[in-house]
């Protein structure tokens, strides 16, 4: 685990990059003048990688993820997703997005929530039901097809929203603090499940978090960000085996990576204001 430059090369198996940002800036105009949410971001994410964006509140990690998803418009620089501009990637439904909250539609059953994207894409009803069954099984929610969201716990709802993001089989999964609102025990459990899912499906994952153990446990690459202006201050490669259990959090290698992340966060984060 050697320190790598900010512009790290693709680490994916076949070398092509799924997300490529160069000199990316994004500022919001507010009443008090412009806010520089992202400043000069250079980032490459290779196929099959699990990349965590970590940093304190206001460091732009969610904004960066939203820019990749074409939910925010960058004010400068280049950003390509799946080899095309982010806007085209969105129109081509090139990614699945998991939000901080499950954002399930309360009037739809779990099954119909999961198949919502398929419905929009015009898949036939029979095929949709089949997909729902497969992906609900994948996130261990078999048997909950006919339930409504309020009948499920928060963790189950978030798993349903992951099934919804996966069901149309996008190569890229964008996750914005998906487990942030859940308690520690549920979170550990879902982290393990997510890792198995990632190993099983070979997706590229971009994962926003503010938890150091979560980032280190899940990732092949950890992008440390810092606020005012939002920027990348370190990119750390972590090559733990794909199949891993929560126990690796006790190993010296794990603690060393976690230490580097913490150092990076400390260096970039000035508490003088």
């Amino acid at each position: 685990m050697t320190p790598s430059p900010v512009q790290s090369g693709p680490a994916g198996s076949d070398g092509d990059s799924v997300v490529r940002a160069h000199g990316l800036t994004l500022s919001f105009q507010t009443a008090d003048g412009p806010v520089h949410a992202l400043s000069d971001i250079d980032l490459e994410i290779g196929r099959g990688e699990f990349v965590s964006l970590i940093g304190p509140s206001g460091c732009g990690k969610t904004t960066l993820l939203r820019a990749i998803a074409d939910l925010e418009q960058p004010t400068g620089g280049n950003l390509s997703v799946n080899g095309v501009p982010a806007h085209e990637a969105r129109l081509a439904r090139g990614y699945g997005y998991v939000f901080q909250a499950p954002a399930l539609y309360p009037w739809r059953t779990i099954e119909r929530n999961v198949t919502l994207p398929l419905e929009i894409m015009g898949m036939a009803a029979g095929a949709r039901r089949e997909k729902a069954r497969d992906y609900l099984e994948l996130v261990n929610l078999s048997g909950f097809e006919k339930k409504f969201p309020w009948q499920l716990s928060g963790g189950m709802q978030q798993r349903a929203s992951i099934a919804r993001a996966l069901c149309f089989d996008p190569d890229l999964l964008l996750m914005d603090e998906p487990f942030g609102a859940l308690d520690e025990i549920v979170r550990d459990h879902l982290n393990e499940q997510l890792l198995q899912l990632w190993a099983k499906t070979q997706k590229t994952v971009v994962f926003v978090t503010h938890s150091i153990p979560e980032a280190v446990f899940l990732s092949t690459k950890i992008v440390v960000m810092s606020p005012r202006p939002g920027r990348i201050i370190d990119v750390i490669e972590a090559d733990f085996p794909r199949e891993r259990s929560l126990d690796i959090r006790e190993t010296p290698e794990f603690l060393e990576v976690a230490h580097r992340v913490r150092e990076g966060l400390r260096a970039g984060h000035s508490y003088d204001d």
Partner: peptide, 14 residues
Amino acid sequence: PDPLQMDLMSTYSA
């Protein structure tokens, strides 16, 4: 609808 529910529709380019 809350912003996330609206964003979700955008991500599907509905």
